[in-house]
Amino acid sequence: MTTQLEQRGQNLATGKTTSAKARWRIPATLEVAAVWIVVGVIGPGLFTGSTLFLATTALIFVLFAMSTNVLLGWTGITSFGQAAFFGAGAYTVGLLAPIALPPLIQLFVGAAVGAILAMIFSLVANRVTGVEFAMLTLVFGESISLLLYRIPALGGESGLPGIPRGAIFGTSLFSDKTFWWYAIAITGVLAIVIRRLRGSTFGASLTAVRDNPLRASALGINVKLSRIVAFTVAGLLAGVAGALYAQLQGIASPDIMSWTVSGEVIIMCLIGGMHTYWGPAIGAVIFTVANWALSNSTSSPELYFGLGLLVIVLVLPEGLLGLVPMISKRMTRRQKVLS
């Protein structure tokens, strides 16, 4: 498995894919756009009532998981503090609610707050890597969430309720259907940006840093800077996701800053597969839906959720999307046998 990954990283790092990239760049963007358009169009017809709301929640977690995967899957950084940036975006929207800024401006401010917070943190924490870095992110996230209780303006346990959704280009986002379109547009654009980043030299340099920091450094990549930039990008995107979440829910509450949320978003990446573009997205959807379905159908959802997760971790190291190459390999083998 590791050798496979290394190979892939090597290919990216050495530019073996450049010839392919020229051919693939536009289709890759189109591919993402197509998925978002299809899901967007079918969504309101397929999901009625509260399930559309659930689908919108899932969509926001797709963005959050994709942002986290910039660290986890691309750069090989484990962060147990991503909820802090997600929460920072949400609380920014909550604090801005009285000024009634347009929703898009709120997203920009949320993104900026997430990015700045992440950049400051990674500048300070850059001295350590690995488990120690993960521990620092955990501590950082917990400290930020403790601040929610210590700064009266942040509302403590009750959070910041009563956030209006506002209107965009004169259209109110009040109905769940218009908000769905708004969320589809925002997450779709960012998903395309993430796809382009992944295929860019920046994406390749992150993969090189992940696979072998020493070699990356020898290749002229500034390892520390790459890590800081990756962390900032992840914080920015998490900030947007958090801001969207607050607009959807109408409340920014302290539970979204807890370390368990940071753990959950890593789980989403892991379920789907963190070494593929689509893995985190699939993982986020499955996580959200499974969580919702289990809590309504069993008395101890934790038990089944935990068991399911254990099976995925043990049997599918590359997540559910790891199944695709496994199956296709088996199918080609069978075809060969048949012919």
Partner: peptide, 24 residues
């Protein structure tokens, strides 16, 4: 990888539609 989005969209939609079917 290229044709991946078709099955993925399928999976996403199926998973989500599973929940709308069960809730009426």
């Amino acid at each position: 990888m290229k044709k991946l989005w078709i099955p993925i969209t399928g999976v996403v939609l199926l998973t989500l539609s599973g929940c709308s079917a069960g809730s009426s």
